[in-house]
Simulated scan of single mutants.
Amino acid sequence: MTNTLKVLWDVFDPVTIFLLITLISTAILVYGNARWRAVAARFVCYTVAISFLVVGLPLGNLLLFPLEQRFPKDEQPLPPSPAGILVLGGGIDAEISHIRQAMELNASGDRVLAMLHLGQLYPNVPIIYSGGPGDWRAQGRGDADALTYAPSITNKIAQRLLIEQRSRNTHENAVEARRLIPADLSAINAPWILVTSAWHMPRAVGAFRSEGWVVHPYPVDFRSGRRFKTGFLRWLRNLDDLKLAIKEWAGLVIYHRLGWSDSAFPSPEIKDGR
């Protein structure tokens, strides 16, 4: 199921769809008859117009904003005595790290930095880093393995660091990480601090709650802002944001339908009836 979902996303990726429509329409314009050429010409015009709107307007920013605001960090003080720290993989460029034999952070590297920061704040709790090969085309190790390339950093938390290397998605993060919980903590109801990107936090919280975890969200790696910027010079960033937002919103729906999340759009838990 995991690989099937990832393949479907690659096929129905917005960029892939636009490219396929453009290529097919262009082929019809060149080789088709007059009737089909007229239809293809319209498709090309529509595709180009939509493409300019998609990359020229901050649609991705608008869609990412509610995801990142779902669990505001400044409104959720850290628990005084957490059971541990959970860090979801995705902050390390696994392919480059394994080629260069050195840990290389990517755009979501705040996850790793937050792990080190929280490790200092809570020097006596276990830290689980969960992240196997996330790409279905990847062969071998994921980004969790790349932590071994930075001993000068990880040595500070090495005695408490538990690495989970099998998970391929957020649902499997929740399932596989549970196998690593020390026996003396399995019955403790204290929350685990969950670290992941802000735009990914709603889906992550839903997946972990569905597997029985008590988590305290600690979002990092924010992508959106209150000032929605426009301008065609931001084409690539706008397109990247839109792809990310569509994937997350679709993931929320799919996870809920598959029973992998306790809610279609998880929210902060309400305590004491408030």
Rank of each mutant, 00 (worst) to 15 (best):
N106M: 14
N106E: 11
S108A: 15
S108T: 15
S108E: 14
S108I: 10
G109T: 06
G109P: 05
G109S: 04
G109A: 09
G109M: 03
D110C: 01
R111H: 10
R111M: 10
R111W: 11
V112W: 11
V112N: 09
V112H: 05
L113H: 07
L113N: 02
M115W: 04
M115I: 06
M115S: 05
M115D: 02
L116W: 07
L116I: 09
H117Q: 13
H117L: 14
H117S: 14
H117P: 00
H117K: 15
L118D: 07
L118Q: 05
L118S: 13
L118K: 13
L118F: 15
G119R: 05
G119H: 06
Q120F: 12
L121M: 14
L121C: 08
L121R: 13
L121V: 02
Y122W: 01
P123Y: 06
P123N: 07
N124T: 13
N124Y: 11
N124C: 02
P126R: 02
P126W: 02
P126N: 03
I127Y: 08
I127Q: 07
I127S: 08
I127E: 04
I128Q: 01
I128H: 06
Y129A: 04
Y129I: 03
Y129K: 05
S130T: 12
S130V: 00
G131D: 04
G131Q: 01
G131W: 04
G132F: 05
G132Y: 09
G134D: 04
D135N: 14
R137K: 13
R137F: 12
A138K: 02
A138F: 01
A138P: 00
Q139L: 12
Q139F: 12
G140A: 08
G140Y: 09
G140P: 03
G140D: 01
G140L: 11
R141Q: 14
R141M: 13
G142L: 11
